[in-house]
Simulated assay, not measured.
Amino acid sequence: MTASRKAAVELAALHVDRPDPSSSLVHSCRAELRYVCSVGLTLAVDAALAQRVSLAAEGPLARRGEALQINLGEGPCVEALKERRTVLVPDLDDPYPTVGWPVYAQQARAHGIRAAFALCALLEPDHSGPQPGLVMSVYRDRPGPLPHKDLETVRAHVHAADILLLAVPRPGENTAADAWFLHSDAVVHQATGMISYRHHVTAGQALALLRAHAHACQTDVRDLAHTVVHEGLHLPPLPPPDPTNP
Rank of each mutant, 00 (worst) to 15 (best):
L81W: 14
S38W: 05
L43I: 03
Q218Y: 12
A179N: 07
R52E: 10
G133R: 05
Q107M: 15
R18A: 10
G65Q: 08
P237R: 14
K6E: 13
A206R: 12
Y139N: 02
W101T: 01
P130L: 13
L81P: 00
G204F: 05
L88K: 11
S196M: 06
Y96N: 06
I195K: 01
L25T: 02
H157P: 01
L164V: 03
L238W: 08
R109E: 05
R109Q: 10
S128M: 11
S28F: 06
L209H: 12
V135T: 09
E124L: 07
A203L: 15
S184K: 14
S38E: 07
A115E: 07
A67L: 13
A67P: 00
T219E: 09
H159D: 04
S22Q: 15
E173L: 13
A48D: 08
D141M: 11
A62W: 14
H199G: 01
P95H: 12
T153P: 00
S137M: 11
L207R: 08
P237M: 15
A56H: 13
A216E: 11
H199M: 01
R5P: 00
L25P: 02
H159V: 02
A50L: 11
G144S: 10
V228R: 02
T153M: 10
D220A: 13
A56S: 12
T2K: 08
H27E: 05
C29T: 09
A206Q: 04
Y35W: 13
V16W: 04
E152H: 11
R140L: 11
R140A: 12
H27I: 06
L41T: 05
L49A: 09
L43G: 00
A116V: 13
G193R: 02
R85H: 10
P76H: 12
T98P: 00
E32R: 14
L68A: 04
W180S: 00
L119Y: 10
A12K: 14
L207M: 14
L49M: 15
K149L: 11
R155A: 05
T202G: 04
A179G: 03
Q51W: 15
P95R: 11
I113N: 03
P239A: 07
P143K: 15
V201F: 03
V138Y: 05
P95A: 04
A177V: 07
H111P: 00
H159G: 00
L55P: 00
V26N: 01
R63S: 02
E74S: 03
C120L: 14
P169G: 06
A214P: 01
D93Y: 09
T227W: 09
D242G: 06
A110T: 07
K149D: 04
P97Y: 13
P241R: 13
G65N: 06
L72R: 08
S184D: 03
P171F: 02
Q69N: 09
V78M: 14
T2A: 06
V53S: 06
V158G: 03
R5K: 09
R18N: 03
V154R: 05
R63G: 02
R5C: 02
A115Q: 04
H213P: 00
R85F: 13
N245R: 15
